[in-house]
Design a protein around this nucleic acid. Structure first.
Lengths: 245, 245
DNA sequence: GAAATAATTTGACGATCCGTCAAAACTCGC
DNA sequence: GCGAGTTTTGACGGATCGTCAAATTATTTC
């Protein structure tokens, strides 16, 4: 036991389970993703399924975790973008954009597990991992904001900490993306290009805070484009291919 | 049949059902709110339940609708606040705040029904009503923004329509409130007073857009307080009583 | 290589819940 | 008090989750 190849066999099987589960979630939604169907999709039985995951919610959480990890990686790459603090924050915004465009369905499953309804049926370990991912994303943003303060490019008003600003930017973006998932909602509101609107809103907010250089002094849309091209060339191509299909 | 008193009897029963359902949702969550338990709570059987609601999701939607109606009413009252456009928008913000503080649980059920997962199992009529409420709220905000444009207090940048700005403010606020529902999330992010942070963020955003009078020229926190006192005196007292309990 | 032992897999099963529907209970005009 | 029409009921079918004793497979021992 504990043979090295066995570990890998388990790993492989777990990936297979998640692959099937994700497809089911995609095609038939949360209620359509049943444990029996997943078991039918892999060549193992339901019992074996439960050796990998504590519950159906745990499977969902594992899917969400994959998303969170991916986003975290996007954020980490974006945080290394070359440029001043506000440019790097813009790159983070681009990363979130791209993540959302590439994985709109992951995004949904992610939101689900945050509804403490499901939280109780999830294994502690996985829950912690999700938390760590979220914390890391937040930390990256907070760090950039702190850098801007150090560089005297940003002076936050009293009572607003870097963590709070990160929370706000996060909320604005995720809230908007969540509303976008609502079909027909945007049309009803007369919103044409929601992603661009979010971009603009974030920049306007930062302008309002006086984060230098202001967007009147610097073309942050160009910065975002550069971030796309330099940090995420492959993913950007993917998005455009998907869009023109 | 169709006797006037009978109509009222049906109405009364429906309210009773929703009262019981809401308590169950509050105490035991979505999965704990079973149709059998609701039936046990009222003095009718499950079959009768299904004469009022098409499905369990329909019950949930009805609960969410009650919330949406309440919020819509809050918004309508706030929109009549005396003052310039930005002051009225601030009053809308106060209304949303108050709504969230008074009905944090309603807020959750509301979010649920937007996850098109459930949408299919909801009666068309109720779905429409929810849509109408949302549209009305959005319309009120859009109207105020348009007023500001007419009064030349606001000049939106190219590509940003009043509807888009309303969408952004809405997303920022609801996104933040949604994150607040996540227990432990705020602490981890180092956010002390999230509601105040949202307020500040909205004002900063409007400042960034140059919506006159700017917050440097006008104390919008005082305006919010006035809105609380003038439009929602009773509800404000409720919130403070609940907070100091 | 065979037998004994340990680990793993299986799928039938209990429990729960949703939504239905035939039968029972009830209403109301006569 | 009777009977047609209406409303209510709760047992039931179907679906799903998670379990667990039995079956199968792997590993060790002799």
């Amino acid at each position: 036991m504990a043979a090295p190849w066995k570990e890998r066999e388990l790993q492989r099987r777990e990936e297979e389970i998640l692959r099937v589960a994700r497809q089911l979630l995609l095609d038939h939604g949360y209620f359509g993703m049943t444990m029996d169907r997943i078991a039918a999709g892999i060549e193992y039985s339901k019992g074996t399924l439960y050796q990998h995951f504590a519950s159906k919610e745990d499977v969902l959480c594992a899917l969400a975790l994959e998303s969170e990890v991916k986003r975290k990686e996007f954020f980490e790459r974006a945080a290394q973008f070359s440029g001043n603090a506000r440019e790097r924050m813009t790159a983070i915004g681009a990363a979130y954009e791209l993540y959302f465009r590439l994985h709109p369905t992951y995004f949904r499953s992610e939101q689900m597990i945050h509804s403490q309804e499901l939280l109780t049926k999830i294994s502690q370990e996985r829950r912690d991992q999700v938390m760590v991912c979220g914390a890391r994303c937040h930390e990256l943003m907070t760090g950039i904001i702190a850098d801007a303060q150090t560089a005297r490019q940003l002076h936050l008003p009293g009572g607003m900490t870097p963590g709070t600003l990160a929370f706000i930017l996060w909320s604005l973006t995720s809230g908007a993306y969540l509303n976008m998932a609502d079909p027909g909602h945007l049309e009803q509101m007369g919103v044409v290009n929601a992603i661009e609107a979010v971009r603009m809103a974030c920049q306007t907010l930062l302008d309002g805070l006086g984060w230098r250089p202001l967007s009147s002094e610097h073309d942050y849309f160009a910065v975002a484009s550069r971030a796309y091209a330099e940090i995420f060339p492959k993913e950007t191509a993917e998005v455009f291919l998907a869009a023109n299909r």
